[in-house]
Amino acid sequence: MEEPKSSAPSSRSESETDEKGDGAGAAIILFFILGLAASLLVGWIAFPALLYSEKRQPVDFNHALHNEIVDHGCASCHFFREDGSFSGAPKLAQCIECHREANSDDPEEIRFVEEYVKPGREVPWLVYARQPDCVFFSHAAHVRMGGIDCAVCHGPIGESTSLKPYQVNRITGYSRDIWGWNIAGIKRNTWDRMKMDDCAECHAQARVPGGSVQTQKDGCFVCHK
């Protein structure tokens, strides 16, 4: 029987391999982590920064201040028309009812009167909650029939003293408020996001009729007419 003679060289070669392997493995892990880190940085920070452009509202409106003065809360300015359709952002005609002249020496109000009221120019409000055109949404169905409070979807905007910046998605042209300000799409409040899943969540809970007979799923045609 012959003794195996190859143990020493083989162990040396193993240790050599190990040594070499350790170095190479570390490099691989390092590069993997580098790639991971770089892409996470791009995905979580650079991408959102590039995706949205930011605009300021034409006039910095103080909701809290107005809410104290008016009698009917939100509906004082954001009202239902006679035919049940919703007026949305107020027209200049409504503002003029009180602001024919500046009522204070607030520079923002004076600018508003000078730039919009006097020339009779409509304020190009940027609408945070504007849904894409493929979505049919009726305020009457939700507020009047469903009895849902404005803040459920729009948040406590009525308590704000200043308008938040409006971020527009460069690809879709829609407001960031639809996807939500959290880029991961995580929401803590009902008003954090306005995507289809958020509508569907509530529709499923409220058992909104209109589900498809064929697919046994929620009704596409309720919103996508």
Binding site: F32, I33, G35, L36, A37, L40, G43, F47, A184
Partner: peptide, 11 residues
């Protein structure tokens, strides 16, 4: 690493 990171990002 980049692929894994991208998949773990919202991009």
């Amino acid at each position: 690493g980049g692929a894994a990171g991208t998949a773990l990002s919202p991009l």
